[in-house]
Simulated assay, not measured.
Amino acid sequence: MTVVCVPDSNARELLGALPDGVEVIVWDGEGTKPERLAETVFWVPQVEDCTNLAEKFEAMPKLEVTQLTSAGFEDIIDHVPDGVTLCTARGVHGSAVAEMVMTVVLATLRRLPHFVEAQRQGRWEPMEADDLRAKRVLIIGAGDLGEQTARRLRSFDAAPVLVAHTAREGIHATSELPSLLPEADVVVLTVPLTPDTTGLVDAEFLARMPDGALLVNVARGKVVDTDALLAELTSGRLRAALDVMEPEPLPEGHPLWKAPNLIITPHAAGSIAQAGPRAFALVNAQVRRFVAGDDLVNVVNGGS
């Protein structure tokens, strides 16, 4: 019997039918441990679970696979025991997050915040805006999300430029950023959080961006130096749209709330009605691959 553990009853329902010989148990990682938990070989944690991970892994000594329902893995990877394969949900949320990038870029260029505020105050206040045509958009992070964002930008006649840690055909290396940033109308962050990307967007990075440029962060808050960005926003030199930020959730009274030239969304880029069904369709396929002895997809850490 193959024991699969999912975080809640809704996840069990979304998981759907599985092959004979698979038993699904429910455990949110807290409270009373269900029977057969110690027999679990395939675990689906709660979204972005980062608490008491060592204890959770200890409760499943036979675990072979940890399957995330998010693309991010920075909170868990250092806790995964040897011999346990870690897989992400790469590709599941990319379309939704790429749509959010397009939403905030277009909203900023077309001055929607200004028009919404004028409407709220009952003022008829036309303002000249801008469009995406021929805009140079630097996308830092050339994975699924970066590629999906680039594809959408091209349909608006923009010119996306993809950047990854290492250069390859059609993609620049992060070492080229000093020469790329001064030419960017928009910079979009889609990188995972790693030691290399933590604090990547610092005062020097921002200073290289041209006046009036837009920074969009749908990666992780710690990729950006919050104080450095606040200084640029307050001066009016740069604009930004943040779906993720540091700290998060953003506390009441934090200066980002009142910063000019900024759109804030509460880590909502992937929060769409189909996120759960799409994620667990992937989980279902992964369980079937595991049972059949086939190679899993989206493997981050293959164990040792």
Rank of each mutant, 00 (worst) to 15 (best):
G276P: 07
N261P: 10
Q148M: 03
V287W: 10
S70P: 00
V4D: 06
L177F: 15
L250I: 09
T88K: 01
V201H: 14
A89L: 05
D243Q: 00
P7R: 13
T51I: 07
G221M: 02
M102P: 05
T234Q: 09
P34Q: 05
A231D: 14
M209T: 13
D225L: 13
F156D: 06
E23H: 15
R220Q: 09
G236H: 10
Q121F: 08
L153W: 07
M209W: 12
E30Y: 12
G199C: 13
W124T: 03
D131R: 00
W27K: 13
V105H: 10
K258Q: 10
V297A: 07
V22H: 13
S9T: 11
A96W: 05
V188H: 01
D78G: 12
D295K: 12
H79G: 01
I139Q: 11
P61H: 06
V299E: 04
V137I: 14
R168L: 04
T66P: 02
R90D: 11
V97K: 01
D20G: 15
G146T: 09
D131L: 01
L18A: 12
Q67P: 02
R151K: 13
V187I: 10
L112P: 01
K258E: 15
V201D: 09
T66W: 03
H172C: 12
A173K: 12
G276L: 08
N52M: 00
P19M: 10
R151I: 01
L242S: 03
P182R: 12
W27Y: 09
A273D: 10
F290Y: 15
L214H: 14
V223M: 10
R239A: 02
E48V: 04
N52G: 05
E128D: 07
Q274R: 11
P266V: 06
L63F: 08
